Amino acid sequence: MLFSVVLLVIGIALLLINVGVISLEIREFFVMFIPILLVLAGIVYFIKCIRNKSSISILFALYFTIYGSLLMLNQQKIISFTYGDWWKLWPVFFIYLAVNMLFFKGKAQIVVEFNSTQNSEDEKTKKVKGKRYKKSLINDMHFNEQNWPLQSMDLHTNIGDFYFDFNKAFIPEEETTIKIKSRIGDVKMLVPEDIPIKIEVKTKVGDIRLFDLKSTDMKPHLYYESPTYHEAIKKIDITIEMGIGDIRIDRV
């Protein structure tokens, strides 16, 4: 969506320049329109935040909106703020933490969509020794289609949210291993009560809620293992490592 908006704005502006409606050099064009595109990016992330109830999206929404707005004010000679001053916006992270605690903490609602193309070559998904392996820079991963086939996974991404509804999955009679690693993003899961599980979750900055357990440390780390895990045939082993983000895991 964001890429489409960027192409639309650039295309319209270049068309107006070519037909003589507006007269701008290419350099002046980018200086004028890049702040607008940044604000549009902030709006897109804000919409995503509301739609997916993803708290991490609000961080990008705040950053891009404020960054673009300050650049626009600089163009109007109201303030002095250049592209190289992006580092001055580091207090936005504290604003994000405050907004996250005020409006997102305690909301464990799971909003999950299944991506029917996640086995395609375009997403660079492959199987390694019977395990689904996927690595990407920016990507959300959704698993909630009815009877979706659960298998061992090794998922890595820099930025992205993860959504799992194991209650709708076809779970094989074996130990299924799921490893998730991401720099920025949220993880939300629904786990059936009758499936033994072993879970280890870590995040450097964020909040963890694992059933009735809740993290309180600066570097949260929680561990849980079902009493019957080792004796069970059908079971799930989950490991989650996040840089910045929230983790919610509930029984259903």
Results as ranks from 00 to 15, higher is better:
Val99Tyr: 10
Phe164His: 07
Lys126Gln: 07
Val44Phe: 10
Glu193Lys: 13
Leu7Cys: 11
Lys179Cys: 11
Pro220Lys: 09
Lys88Trp: 14
Ile43Phe: 09
Glu241Gly: 10
Met101Arg: 14
Asp217Gln: 11
Glu200Ile: 10
Glu25Arg: 03
Asn119Tyr: 15
Met32Asn: 10
Ile180Gly: 04
Ile43Trp: 01
Asp140Phe: 00
Asn167Ala: 13
Ser54Gln: 07
Leu8Trp: 13
Met32Arg: 09
Asn139Pro: 00
Val201Gly: 07
Met242Ala: 07
Glu175Phe: 03
Gly243His: 07
Phe114Ala: 13
Ile34Thr: 15
Leu70Asn: 03
Lys48Tyr: 13
Val31Lys: 09
Phe104Pro: 00
Gly206Glu: 12
Leu190Tyr: 05
Ile17Cys: 04
Arg248Gly: 06
Pro149Thr: 00
Val5Gln: 01
Ser55Pro: 06
His142Gln: 13
Leu97Trp: 02
Leu38Arg: 02
Arg132Glu: 10
Ala98Thr: 11
Thr157Ile: 06
Lys105Arg: 15
Phe93Trp: 08
Val5Met: 02
Asp194Ile: 04
Leu24Gln: 13
Leu73Ser: 04
Lys129Gln: 12
Glu175Pro: 02
Leu150Asp: 02
Ile95Gly: 04
Ser55Ile: 05
Gln75Leu: 08
Gln76Ser: 14
Phe104Ile: 03
Lys135Ile: 10
Lys168Leu: 12
Ala41Asp: 05
Ser136Thr: 10
Glu241Arg: 09
Phe64Cys: 14
Asp246Lys: 10
Asn100Asp: 05
Asp186Phe: 00
Pro35Ser: 05
Ser69Ile: 08
Gly84Gln: 12
Phe33Leu: 15
Pro220Gly: 14
Lys131Leu: 05
Asn167Thr: 15
Lys48Thr: 03
Gly42Asn: 09
Glu225His: 01
Glu200Asn: 07
Asn100Ala: 11
Lys88Thr: 09
Gln146Ile: 13
Val187Glu: 07
Leu102Ser: 07
Ile244Leu: 12
Lys188Ile: 05
Lys124Tyr: 14
Ile249Arg: 00
Phe64Gly: 08
Phe3Cys: 02
Ser116His: 09
Phe94Gln: 06
Gly84Ser: 12
Tyr96Gln: 11
Lys131Trp: 02
Gly68Asp: 06
Leu222Trp: 03
Arg27Trp: 15
Lys77Tyr: 11
Thr125Gly: 11
Leu213Gln: 15
Asp85Cys: 08
Ile180Val: 13
Met72Val: 08
Arg132Cys: 03
Leu38Asn: 08
Leu137Thr: 13
Ile195Cys: 07
Ser226His: 09
Ile26Pro: 02
Ile178Ala: 05
Thr117Glu: 14
Ile58Phe: 14
Glu174Pro: 02
Ile199Val: 15
